[in-house]
């Protein structure tokens, strides 16, 4: 599927770099202002006695140290693994559920109240129950992440599958299509943009819930490492970890936005 393609302009290398910066000057300015404000606040001891450790400069040095001694990979990889495993399980469960609920109106009415009720509960509230059922460790964390990811996926898919134009359905029927054909050729492709929106929201909320979930008795991961650096009074490493959490989250979201731009169709 091709949509919203960008025009590629062919130019010499240096000209391209200048153009690239020109087009994004205000984005760069935003980043620089953010870093400058952060550094100044720390230098002026705006956050108390430990302010120096919170500064971007200390964080950058700690980041280098953590890159060298392998701390970054050691904690980022388990975090990414937990998010990806729980997202995959959420997708496998939520997309078919969403399509069926969106297509069959009775099913939508049956599930409406339970779904709206369940989605408003923070998954962390289930934490003690998760630990009773699955024990302390990876499975509980994955379960909590799964529980938070399914709602945006289900509800967006329901929305996408439900707003399919009745014209398309009638046209398929006049071509002799049955339920299976309608689902596979009309409903599912029509719902793909909404599924991707759901995925983007699910990734965002999973990544946010990951940090507190990893504070619940796992031996690695970025959430664990936040507590670990605190206990070792390494506030520079704590800031560096916060930076890594933000950066990975930003990249995950960018990947999602790219997916959406690639697979969204226009009316």
């Amino acid at each position: 599927m091709k949509m919203g393609s960008k025009e590629d302009n062919i130019q010499s290398g240096s000209g391209m770099i200048v153009d690239f910066i020109k087009g994004r000057a205000f984005y760069l300015l935003g980043i620089l202002l953010f870093l400058a404000a952060w550094q100044i606040a720390c230098t002026l001891k705006g956050f108390g006695d430990f302010s120096e450790a919170f500064s971007p400069l200390s964080a950058a040095l700690a980041l280098l140290e953590m890159a060298r001694n392998g701390d970054i990979l050691h904690h980022a990889i388990p975090s990414l693994r937990r998010v990806l495993v729980s997202l995959s399980l959420a997708i496998v469960f939520a997309l078919p559920t969403g399509v069926l609920v969106g297509y069959f109106r009775q099913l939508e009415q049956i599930t409406y109240v339970p779904f709206q009720f369940m989605r408003m509960i923070s998954p962390l509230a289930w934490m003690p129950i998760a630990i009773i059922i699955f024990g302390v460790g990876d499975v509980s964390v994955t379960f909590l992440l799964w529980l938070v990811a399914i709602w945006p996926l289900i509800l967006n898919t329901v929305h996408g599958a439900g707003r399919v134009s009745p014209l398309w359905l009638n046209m398929a029927k006049t071509m002799g299509a049955k339920d299976m054909g309608i689902l596979s050729k009309i409903i599912i492709p029509a719902a793909i943009p909404d599924m991707l929106t759901g995925l983007r929201l699910a990734v965002g909320v999973s990544w946010i819930i990951l940090v507190p979930a990893e504070m619940l008795g796992v031996p690695d991961g970025l959430g664990y490492f936040i507590l670990d650096t605190r206990d070792r009074f390494r506030y520079d490493q704590l800031m560096a970890t916060i930076f890594i959490i933000g950066a990975i989250g930003y990249l995950l979201d960018s990947a999602n936005r790219w997916l959406i731009s690639k697979f969204a169709w226009k009316i």
């Binding site: 599927m1 014209l167 009638n170 046209m171 006049t174 071509m175 002799g176 492709p189 029509a190 793909i192």
Partner: peptide, 19 residues
């Protein structure tokens, strides 16, 4: 008894799939 492939209907508004 219902719609069927022996009767192809063309609607006032076209129904092309945008994707």
């Amino acid at each position: 008894k219902g719609p069927g492939a022996d009767r192809g209907m063309i609607f006032q508004e076209y129904a092309l799939l945008p994707w």
